[in-house]
Amino acid sequence: MAAYFTSKWSTIGSSLLGNLRNNIVFCASTAHETTRLGNSSSLFLQQLRTFIQMRTKLKVVDNSGAKWVRCIQSLKGRKGARLGDTIIASVKEAQPRGKVKKGEVVYGVVVRAAMQRGRCDGSEVKFDDNAVVLVNKQGEPIGTRVFGPVPHELRKKKHLKILTLAEHIA
């Protein structure tokens, strides 16, 4: 916009030089304001992602029958669970005739987390949503399919069965 204004004024040519300088200053100030506005709005829009803690709602991405679960306890970490950790959850919404019913207390492995997690080489990885795969107490998955991408860190956590069932490994 600023460039457009300056070009317009320079083409007129008959305007005084002092006028021109004033225009440039004006344009610069407006541009500065717009950038500042953009920054503040983006800060407002972005949500701060944190640990998976008590009362976090998670999507169930297997065919065990549950749709949504709510975390009631994380089995590791004082602050909460992260990508690859195991949680205890209660089933909030389930399909009829599934393996698990609404209100059951289940174990689950966090396979996707919106909060970033460091990788072994120092880089970080984060996902779109918080998702969980339901497992039994021994750590074997209840369902027979896993949907969406899962991180390769599950190998380190000894959840090989989930990795073999997964569609994509990120």
Binding site: R112, S123, E124, V125
Partner: peptide, 30 residues
């Protein structure tokens, strides 16, 4: 992107977006 640098974002359709630094990541989020 050299090893140990940056962040990667995995969308639900398994597309991976890699960023070399937070500047690029922030611009993507905007």
């Amino acid at each position: 992107i050299y090893p140990g640098h940056g962040i990667q974002f995995v969308r639900n359709d398994a597309k991976i977006f890699r960023f070399c630094r937070s500047k690029c990541h922030k611009n993507f989020k905007m």
